[in-house]
């Protein structure tokens, strides 16, 4: 198109250069208009869908928010009332246990990639595989944990659930830790090393400290990522309509699987609870994402 319009603008275009020039300009302007309208429309549609989903959650879930939600456990089939206390507590336990497993491994692996493995083949492979793991389907991670932790021990458990969540959180933490450590200027490392500090002390006292906000952001993002994961919990932590064991064996009640089970159930109070739970979980995740963003932008 550019070629045509350029030749169109040369004076040698013929006896009526004015008309030809005008026609070319017209078609270019129409093309440009089409791009502007479709691009703006596409963005408007995406933003509209976000507000549609949030509006629906607020409207339908807002009606279910009450004190009972936080003080009573999930009701049995056909039982009136009830709340989500066991599911909320179970979800918090599973999520934080998952993060507690993933954080040390993730931060250490990220440290290896940024500090020790610069230019090494192993680091390159780990970085690549970590990126693959970052977008691997979460249901396959659920199947994997089922095969290694549920099948051998013959039973669903909260431990299996939190391991599955930890595997999903790990690549997020590895990736952000590495990126954030790379932002630490080399001068800091060299200055610390020149004072006689060994590598491990440089990393712990200088690099980690300098990158603290970034690493915390990564952990928050990982938390947001796993808080709403449903598929990997289906075959690992399962669900439980009662108060769970604190040794985390047997099914553990958790919000996402409860929402999944209750949303399409034929009982009105179950559906109401599912919407309220959906509102809680989305609110928590959006809050975490915005907090992570604010933390990183403050620097």
């Amino acid at each position: 198109m550019t070629d045509a319009s350029l030749t169109g603008s040369t004076p040698s275009a013929g006896p009526q250069p004015q008309i030809k020039w005008g026609r070319v300009r017209q078609s270019r302007r129409v093309q440009d208009k089409i791009l502007r309208v479709t691009a703006t429309g596409a963005t408007a549609l995406s933003v509209f869908v976000l507000f549609w989903i949030l509006g629906m959650l607020l409207w339908k879930g807002g009606q279910g928010i009450s004190l009972d939600l936080f003080t009573k456990i999930t009701p049995g089939p056909g039982t009136a009332g009830g709340g989500l206390l066991n599911a909320i507590v179970g979800s918090i336990v599973l999520t934080f246990l998952g993060i507690a497993i993933a954080t040390p491994i993730g931060v250490m692996a990220g440290t290896y990639l940024a500090e020790y493995g610069r230019g090494s083949k192993l680091a390159e492979v780990v970085r690549f595989i970590n990126d693959i793991l970052l977008s691997a389907p979460s249901i396959l991670i659920g199947l994997f944990v089922y095969v290694i932790l549920v099948m051998p021990f013959r039973g669903y458990s909260g431990w299996a659930g939190s391991v599955a969540l930890a595997i999903i959180a790990l690549p997020v933490i590895v990736r952000t830790t590495e990126d954030m450590l790379r932002l630490v200027p080399n001068g800091l490392r060299e200055a610390a090393a020149a004072l006689g500090a060994p590598t491990s002390v440089v990393i712990r006292q200088v690099c980690w400290r300098a990158a603290k906000a970034g690493i915390v952001t990564g952990i928050l993002l990982a938390l947001a990522r796993i808080a709403g994961e449903t598929a990997p919990l289906l075959f690992t932590a399962l669900n439980n309509s009662f108060w769970f064991n604190w040794n985390l064996t047997g099914g553990i009640s958790n919000l996402p699987v409860t929402i999944y089970a209750f949303a399409s159930a034929p009982y009105d109070n179950w559906q109401q609870l599912a919407w309220a739970g959906a509102l809680l979980i989305t609110g928590a995740i959006l809050f975490l994402s915005i907090a992570a963003r604010a933390l990183i932008n403050r620097k």
Binding site: S46, L50, M56, G228, P256, I259, T282, I285, L286, S289
Partner: peptide, 20 residues
């Protein structure tokens, strides 16, 4: 930010929005 938040919404919420 709005577009990125759309990525943070869990898939089960998309499912409920889709179904209902």
């Amino acid at each position: 930010t709005a577009v990125e938040l759309l990525a943070a919404v869990p898939s089960i919420i998309y499912g409920m929005w889709g179904l209902f």
